[in-house]
Design a protein around this nucleic acid. Structure first.
Length: 595
RNA sequence: GGUCGCGUAGCUCAGGGGAUAGAGCAACGGCCUUCUAAGCCGUCGGUCGAAGGUUCGAAUCCUUCCGCGAUCGCCA
């Protein structure tokens, strides 16, 4: 039970006692007391004036006096311009610390055993090219949100729906057949996904040449794009694939397996994982029957050419195609099918799709069409939409051309971490396994933290050098703070598990500040879970790390002569460190014991 | 053009009805014989895109306008 909730009840009865009226609970709102003002929690009295019929100052004084008298944990109060600043007793903070400081993840909630699962789909790559910067944001977000929901007690299922079929993969296959000379990941030394990507790019290059040639012969651009021999051949390949031509299928399986090997390496390095993987080749036919039922019910309609549509014009949208004139399904149809199947199989309480904001319209339509088809549950679908990741102009060219490759980016982050480490002389042997592990941990923290601290829905600028700075609001800074806390504990010679910590006397302002910050973590976690927002936890972690650094600068720990005080502060440091680790782990960031 | 989103310090971002709008970076100036200086402190920097409205109170909510982006495919 949080203090705020308890206080709310007391304030209700205070007002009832003082003014003879129970206020609406919404009128009671708290905020954190500003740092420069005495007090821990502030009640805003303005909304209560209608009931008290007194001025803000008086109202606040009266409520404050009442609370101080009735509640043990309120040790004092002051009033400034209608804001009632309540001071919470040291003993409250101390018992909070004693109860929680040694718990491993004090803010995490136990899993609700019989709850419906939360399904979260993320990553969802195409198999024709490697992962790029946009996928990094997608994967980090998806994984982090999954962890946050888990920590908040949900039963989470992470899924990856791989787009392993379609014209795009046929392009890579065709180019590999024609120009690949049997090249494999082993023979080329390339990561499988990069190898396939290379042929995709090659296809595109040759295709463009053909288009240019056709246009030179007098064709229009549309004609050229349609008639170029390569695209004709790719379409033929797709047709054969759909007809399950054994040779095409075998080739497709071989090339896709290379891609998966490559993806696995990237996922592992990013630290993300899935509970299930689905393949579009197995789901793409779904959804058709739904559309046919919709036609029977008359909620969908067929045009003269045979194509099937949903009419959303009365909802302010346009008409949306669901089946092509040749009867084949489109993306939307597949998604209708997949969503319905998932719902029926797993009965999730929520289905989260981590997909870029260029598909906002798609998901809007998806939900509307589902509802049209009578799926009243459609509102459990939540599109976790995120903005594009941009890079400072001119930086970081990718191996394959236009987009920034995920693996290249991670390599570059590692190199920067190592270079910084070398310059600072932090490690004696930069080749040692320990050093390499640390550089990897630091560079991944830099990348993850920088991306996750930004509100997902906003587009963002990823600045590699800034992300890996050891000062400021960065992952490495927080790791550094954590490592120092661990070092303090190691050097103290005190076993916190065994130590008996007596009352340290009056709390210093800095000590109380840390406790207040740690106290907030469960609440932050809850908001992060309900808003699907890792950013809250990221920015919280930074505040806490910064708070600790200030504390550390001013308050002696291992230098303190009083043994009991030293143990107390060490426990406080431990508590802060644990909270940091808990919060950062939810972002998928590991914390080093030493650095 | 329709729809959706965004616009806060030179740059990157917090804050999303409440007190004097916050951080970091950059710039400048302090603090290492002292627990990790990959740190800490200070200075400088703002008509919160603009105008109206609602409110005791608006960066925050509403309306209009401006700017930027996404989207409006028988692609996924």
């Amino acid at each position: 039970m949080s203090l705020e909730k308890t206080l709310k009840g007391h304030i209700m009865s205070a007002i009832d006692a003082l003014y003879g009226q129970k206020p609406d609970e919404k009128l009671i709102n708290f905020q954190k007391t500003r740092k420069e003002i005495a007090g821990d929690l502030t009640l805003v009295t303005f909304p209560l004036l209608k009931i008290s019929k007194k001025n803000p100052q008086q109202t606040a004084e009266e409520i404050g006096a009442y609370l101080q008298e009735k509640i043990e944990d309120i040790s004092g109060f002051n009033v400034i311009k209608g804001f009632l600043n309540l001071e919470i007793s040291d003993s409250y903070w101390l018992s909070f610390m004693k109860e929680n400081a040694l718990k491993h993840n004090f803010a995490y909630k136990a899993k609700k055993i019989h709850s419906h699962p939360v399904l979260i789909e993320y990553s969802s790559p195409n198999t024709n090219k490697p992962l790029h910067l946009g996928h990094i944001r997608n994967n980090l977000l998806g994984y982090s949100v999954a962890r946050i929901l888990e920590a908040a007690g949900h039963n989470v299922i992470k899924t990856n729906l791989i787009n392993d079929r379609g014209i795009h993969i046929c392009k890579s296959m065709l180019a590999w057949l024609r120009w690949g000379k049997g090249e494999t990941p082993e023979s080329s030394g390339m990561k499988g996904d990069h190898l396939i990507g290379k042929y995709y790019v090659l296809f595109d290059k040759k295709y463009k040449e053909e288009i240019a040639a056709l246009i030179a012969e007098g064709k229009t651009e549309d004609e050229a794009k349609n008639e170029a021999p390569l695209i004709v051949e790719a379409r033929e390949m797709l047709r054969k694939w759909e007809a399950k031509d054994p040779k095409v299928i075998a080739l497709w399986e071989k090339l896709n397996s290379w891609t998966y090997e490559g993806f696995d390496i990237t996922y592992k390095r990013l630290g993300v994982s899935f509970d299930m993987v689905q393949y579009e080749s197995q789901t793409y036919l779904g959804g058709k029957s739904l559309v046919e039922k919709g036609l029977e019910k008359g909620v969908l309609f067929r045009k003269e050419d045979g194509s099937v549509w949903a009419d959303l014009t009365d909802e302010g949208l346009d008409e949306k195609l669901l089946l092509r004139s040749d009867g084949t399904s489109v993306y939307m149809t597949q998604d209708l099918g997949t969503a319905t199947e998932r719902f029926e199989k797993m009965q999730p309480e929520k289905m989260i799709y981590v997909v870029g904001n260029e598909q906002n319209y798609h998901f809007d339509v998806l939900k509307r069409v589902l509802k049209k088809l009578g799926m009243d549950w459609a509102d459990i679908i939540y599109h976790l939409s995120y903005g594009m990741v941009e890079l400072p102009h001119g930086k970081m060219k990718s191996r394959e051309g236009t987009v920034v490759d995920a693996d290249d980016l991670m390599d570059e982050m590692y190199a920067t971490a190592r270079k910084t480490g070398e310059e600072l002389g932090k490690m004696e042997n930069h080749e040692s396994e320990e050093a390499q592990k640390l550089y990897e941990m630091v560079s991944m923290a830099a990348l993850k933290y920088f991306i996750l601290k930004v509100d997902p829905k906003k587009k963002m600028m990823f600045i590699p050098e800034e992300s890996i700075d050891f000062n400021g609001n960065t992952g490495p800074f927080i790791q550094y703070t954590y490592a120092r806390i661990q070092s303090l504990k190691r050097k103290s010679g005190i076993d916190l598990m065994q130590a008996e910590i007596k009352n340290p006397g009056q709390l210093l302002a800095k000590e109380k500040e840390i406790l207040k910050q740690v106290y907030e973590l469960p609440e932050i976690l809850e908001s992060a879970a309900s808003g699907f927002s890792p950013a809250l936890l990221a920015n919280y972690s930074y505040e806490l790390a910064k708070g600790f650094n200030q504390f550390y600068q001013e308050v002696p720990i291992n230098k303190e002569e009083d043994e009991n005080k030293r143990a107390f502060r060490l426990l406080l440091a431990h508590f802060a460190g644990n909270s940091l680790r808990s919060a950062m782990n939810l972002l998928g960031i590991e914390m080093p014991e030493k650095m």
